[in-house]
Write a protein that binds this DNA or RNA. Structure first.
Lengths: 338, 338
DNA sequence: CTGAAAGCGCTTACAG
DNA sequence: CTGAAAGCGCTTACAG
């Protein structure tokens, strides 16, 4: 592939210096808003810059000053609205803080994750916010640390060592959801959807805990792992309905799974919330207006993204500080599906 | 705000040159995979680089060579899965072509759009892919052109002049959807949701055309504009049901609107597809597993993003070529809601 | 096949 | 308060 053309970059600091009759240093100083330059001079410089159509070359500036105002964000699954909401919160907070974001999507592909991380490293970024792909080795933490790039990991924990992390209380949240189902009189409750992994185990633990608290025996046959997509959940729900007629409720891995369950239920002529209870997890925007509206566990996805941004910004400004975590407190939100 | 720290950048091309006993030029050449350098020398250089933990500073290289491998993508509404799917297709194609993407989200805020565009301009980007905010002035086209930055606009047209554009046949698509409703025997059909703007007018025109083709009089009272969100559509549907009991079907502005309608219908005890017909537009992933699955118009959102990427890449490699357009051909996909 | 030199657009001590 | 000079990490003619 040929080298791409790039925008004309005719006018530089040198040109405006000449036009304003000052030195490059003076122009640089006024561009940075320095108070060292007399008002009158500064005004003359700004006028010249305006007239010439000068545009600041931030990358050149960052190269010289060895600074960076860009942050890499890597997301594993943007097709799940939960991650889209996290991304929006994160991006908003980052640009408000004066950063610009490199965004890369990995589609749960480990190789692509390695590739985009390597590419970002070459870009002199100030930090990385990562929703790791399923199966990401813990060693990635050490690798990125060795690069000297601040990192915050989001949603999926990456081992037990200390690192900046923004996630939610998965166990507590699903325990809440399951306990609600039990309180409504359900005794045969499934745990539905999701792929095995750290988050799955935490949520499953919440399900088990709620059962145990109610004196209900845990039955491995009632946990139905499946792709955490609408389609995976839809198919899985159909199969469950056929093979486990006694089940009357499901604590779902997340809202997407719950939506798939709603769809399958409807297909079978079952009314969610009446004939079969379903609880979601996340409380994505869509949950408020599904058919029927979804009872779920709110972990405030957007706020989670903002929290991740805050952690990363703090790490950047205080590299030596101790790692910290944001764990969203789950809240039950009851609508019509359970 | 203090200047953010940046990663340690200890080792440079200079260091590896010293370690390998060659000049900087030679190192640069082998890094670029030039065939000018003897294999043995190249290997020695690569070995030294590896040993020293050298990492290429792409931004410095781009500054020197006045090239750019980064593209700015600005999206107006990531909370709509349609745009998320467009973004994913776009990003995938761009990184496959060796680019990295700056992503900014505008939340339909014109001021933020101007701000992120200005920021991206300072970053020496190779191109911009823009889903313009509602109310973006046509003049933006000229402005970006004057910057010398290749631009592709997506989804929402921006005036009548020639420019690279990726969108869909809105009029044809909604005509298809409306005609289907008519074929099913509906005579009192609403056009539901969406905010006035170029896309709205095109889709509304399709609705009118289908009515006219069937000899049904258009009634302005049957077009219900509303925020193109689940919530806006939900509330609007409820109001419509109350005030226009004769309406038995709706051609929706997009899938998100249709989902809101599904929710409202369910709330009223109406069965979508039986008691009231709903047609969507876009065919987002979620449409296949809503409750009930949504009949809609497929414009392949992901492919649209890929097409936008292709247009932009072409513009970058052939700046002088004539502007071109990708207009997705709509296809009816019939599921349960109509 | 490889090296010495200039320079991309900027910042930053250092003088004055 | 402002200018001259060096240099960030790289590339690219130009010699040899």
């Amino acid at each position: 592939m040929s080298k791409p053309a790039s925008p004309a970059r005719a006018v530089t600091i040198h040109d405006v210096a000449a036009a304003a009759g000052v030195s490059k240093s003076t122009v640089s100083l006024v561009l940075q808003g320095s108070t060292l330059i007399r008002d009158e001079t500064a005004e003359r410089v700004r006028e010249a810059a305006r007239k010439l159509g000068y545009v600041y070359n931030r990358r050149a500036a960052e190269l010289r000053s060895n600074s960076s105002r860009t942050i890499g964000v890597v997301i594993n699954d943007l097709m799940n609205p939960f991650f889209a909401e996290v991304l929006v919160g994160l991006e908003r907070k980052l640009v408000d803080a004066g950063y610009i974001v490199f965004m890369a999507h990995t589609s749960e592909d480990l190789r692509r994750q390695e590739q985009v991380l390597a590419t970002m490293r070459e870009q002199n970024i100030a930090g990385i916010a990562l929703c790791p792909v399923l199966g990401t080795p813990q060693a990635l933490l050490k690798t990125v640390k060795s690069w000297g790039i601040p990192l915050v990991v989001m949603v999926r924990p990456l081992g037990t060592s200390a690192y900046d992390y923004a996630g939610s209380d998965n166990e507590g949240g699903v325990a809440l959801a399951t306990a609600h189902l039990i309180a409504r009189g359900h005794r045969h409750i499934a745990f539905l959807g999701g792929r095995r992994g750290p988050v799955f185990e935490q949520r499953l633990a919440g399900y088990k805990r709620a059962l145990a608290d109610a004196g209900i025996a845990f039955d491995e046959a009632r946990v139905f792992a499946a792709d955490p997509t609408r389609e995976g959940a839809h198919d899985c729900t159909l199969a469950m309905l056929d093979s486990h007629a006694e089940v009357t409720a499901a604590a779902c891995y997340n809202d997407l799974v719950a939506f798939g369950a709603l769809s399958a239920l409807g297909e079978r002529g079952l009314r969610p919330g009446k004939d079969f209870a379903v609880m979601g997890f996340d409380n994505v925007l869509a949950a408020a207006h599904s058919n029927p509206p979804l009872s779920t566990v709110d972990v405030r996805p957007g706020a989670l993204g903002e929290a991740a941004a805050a952690l990363l910004l703090h790490r950047i400004s205080a590299p030596g500080s101790a790692p910290s975590r944001y764990i969203a407190t789950p809240h039950l939100v009851l609508r019509q599906s359970a």
